[in-house]
Simulated assay, not measured.
Amino acid sequence: MVIDSHQHFWVYDEERDSWITPEMEKIRKNFLPADLEPVLKTNGVDGCVVVQADQSNQETEFLLQMAESNDFIKGVVGWIDLRADNLYDRLEVCSQFEKLKGFRHVVQGERDGFLEQPDFIKGVRQLTAFNFTYDILVYPTQLEASYIFAKELPNVRFVLDHIAKPYIKKGEIEGWAKDIKKLAELPNVSCKVSGMVTEADWYNWKNEDFTPYLDIVFEAFGANRILFGSDWPVCLVAAEYGAMKDILATYVAKLSKDEQKKIWGDNAVKFYSLD
């Protein structure tokens, strides 16, 4: 089974979705299951995990409604206030939704020190009581803090989104590589190979631009802890789905069939406990 472990849906709202800048005009519109399903079929993808793009309870409800109506949506990574006093009770309610697999906070948009907050750490720790996962969304400058954060929570299952958004367009790799390798030392952290094209030159990237970064990720995490993700529709600003998927397909062609099977879907099924 091939699983896209990272994509989004939204009904475009100019104010709420202000992160979609004018230069990203191509995605300043609605993206819903009916738009994605034929794309997945065309590219040989059997199912997907939809991830929050807005930090609200309404966002989680919106994603769950679509997941319940579309079998190809295998899991939901929603948002919840992980610092709320009544978090445990809210997680207990959330646990009733079979397709709700985990949560994410847009830490890349937060101030330095956000991951060090005791109330946030306490909240993430509570995810284990209900077998929920946590997606780490950070920039390279936040990787060191992510290591300290994840090390303090060894029982939480973490996955790093978008290989931490290295500065591919600039060709910068050394600091990112050092911190990625450090984070990968923690056995409870996996990594999504996703979102790379948006960190490259949107109009002039080549498959080879990603090879040095993929070399580091595969050396650090190994085939057992790497998940394929598209970051659709965000990826569309730089690449169509097939072109984006081909970057990884070309790279993993040298691996064994078993390793490829893990990366394309088995690891996602295991990490998110997908049916």
Rank of each mutant, 00 (worst) to 15 (best):
S5K: 14
S5I: 10
V11E: 14
D13W: 08
R16N: 08
D17H: 15
W19M: 08
M24R: 14
R28C: 11
R28Y: 11
N30C: 02
D35L: 04
K41L: 15
G44H: 10
A53T: 13
S56N: 01
T60I: 06
A67G: 15
G75D: 10
G78M: 10
R83I: 02
D85P: 05
D89H: 10
C94Y: 11
V106A: 10
Q108S: 05
P118D: 15
D119P: 03
Q126I: 02
L127H: 14
T128H: 11
D135F: 08
V156S: 09
R157G: 07
F158R: 02
I168M: 01
K170N: 13
G175V: 00
A177N: 04
D179N: 13
K181D: 01
K182D: 03
E185F: 01
C191G: 06
S194G: 07
S194A: 08
A200M: 08
W205E: 09
F218C: 01
A223M: 04
I226V: 12
L227D: 07
F228N: 14
G229M: 06
S230W: 07
S230A: 13
C235M: 15
A243I: 02
K245V: 00
D246F: 06
A249W: 00
A253I: 07
D258Y: 09
Q260F: 07
K261S: 14
D275I: 03
